[in-house]
Design a binder for these strands. Structure first.
Lengths: 249, 249
DNA sequence: GAAGTGTTTCGGTTGTGCCGGAAACTATTT
DNA sequence: AAATAGTTTCCGGCACAACCGAAACACTTC
């Protein structure tokens, strides 16, 4: 942006990113991938090990469990997580499907908690996983309760097509958001993962501020019209209880 | 050690640590706590935000969910976690207590997974939480299967007294480790948390390498002699099944 | 034992992190 | 509104630490 990006910090975290994506790596490997001199990467790795955020085991470097620690501490402090915990379990039991809590961060939807019901299909969903807002039910649920300016910004950045069904037309998106506001829940039909339907309800606090979204995902084949409405009810009720918990505490 | 600690990297992560411990903070606040000039801290925060690992919301900085993401990705790749998952649930159900999976990292025991049984007391235990090896059952379970050199190193670093019951005498520790090897499980009696008894079994792979430990914790009052032995059996069986899973995959 | 591959060390130079100072905001108070 | 105090943010020049080429070192492999 303006200035002072602090190159060292950038580079350190680029290395961390790289380690995270590949589940570890060696100095030379990283060096070639990041197009940096080996000796430089080596210096960084040394420094990172020193901090405790990276471990070195026989020339093989990995991210350490410190990341888990920091991540969980942060999550633990978020009110929504506490407020929603029991509800997630309930929803998972009642629907049998894959249930998640998401929040918005840095213009993306991020999973904070996962609860798998008895029939849940195995999604590649873990806390910290992120996805575009416009291509998911929870994302749309949250966007619907943001001011229009925010939505316009997103549109300007371009609505990436994740699957062939992803909404990429701004007008369609705005229309859908209006629908979400009216009926209280959002749906995505294979817009992020083909063959997958998700239904999500927004969690608001007493000041009508969006705090997150509860989302149920299941295979299209299992989620007919009536079933979807059932699920929508369950999710909305859960979101409601969560709001009460949130305001009560 | 030798040289090149890369000050920028150190400082960046010190700021992250500080943010994590206090659940966020403002520039001036951090500056005074870390005894750095405000402008410097500001520069770092800016850089950290740029990386996406820190979020800024109205002058209030927090660690972002990226840490969760990196942490979980790492955890996901660890074989032990997959191998132990079902067993943790089983143990939690059978014992009713608080069950965890731990590994060793950087001379500490680190929790990787938590499973609470129906009667579990509420411990401040979350993935990423760390504790000294010598003061916990899982730590002792893991140490028992390390070569003596490693143990000697730990002793040299000093056996910190966590509670009044913590083993601080090297000879006693070595003796206990021998017992662990003989009967296959480790016990700690209020050595880390007063009033808390923990029973842990080591998870080894086919090459006899220590991969982690499964740990059951409960209040002293509930864990009499016979109950402890029951639990020891359950934990050992779980560790055994985990080993099989580990080697099979 | 020579040649190949990757890691670690070393040190000079050069670019950039650093931080004092000032400006631009935000509250709060009179 | 004006003054005060406490922030955050911007700026810019200097010193020093990051940077990386090259050399030393540790290994395999042929």
């Amino acid at each position: 942006m303006t200035n002072t990006p602090n190159r060292s910090v950038q580079r350190a975290f680029r290395i961390v990113d790289e380690l995270s994506e590949n589940g570890g790596g060696r100095a030379s490997e990283l060096a070639s991938r990041l197009e940096m001199p080996v000796s430089t990467v080596h210096d960084y790795l040394q420094a990172l090990v020193e901090t405790g955020y990276v471990t070195a085991e026989d020339k093989e470097y990995r991210t350490s469990t410190r990341f888990l620690e920091v991540g969980h501490r942060q999550r633990h402090r978020l009110e929504v997580v506490k407020a929603v915990r029991n509800e997630l379990v309930t929803v998972a039991d009642e629907t049998g499907e894959h249930v998640t809590l998401l929040i918005e961060e840095h213009d993306q939807a991020v999973i904070l908690a996962v609860q798998e019901g008895p029939d849940a299909i195995n999604l590649f969903a873990y806390p910290g996983a992120r996805m575009p807002l416009h291509a998911t039910a929870p994302g749309k649920a949250m966007l619907a309760h943001r001011d229009d300016g925010r939505v316009a910004e997103l549109v300007d950045q371009g609505l990436v097509e994740v699957t062939s069904r992803t909404v990429t037309d701004p007008d369609v998106l705005l229309e859908q958001l209006e629908t979400v506001r009216q009926r209280g829940y959002a749906v995505d039909e294979g817009e992020r993962i083909a063959g997958m339907v998700c239904i999500a309800a927004p969690v608001l606090d007493k000041r009508e501020q969006i705090q997150g979204a509860i989302c149920v995902c299941g295979p299209e084949s299992r989620l007919g019209e009536t079933r979807r409405e059932e699920i929508a009810d369950v999710v909305q009720r859960a979101a409601n209880v969560t709001q009460v918990n949130l305001d009560y505490v």
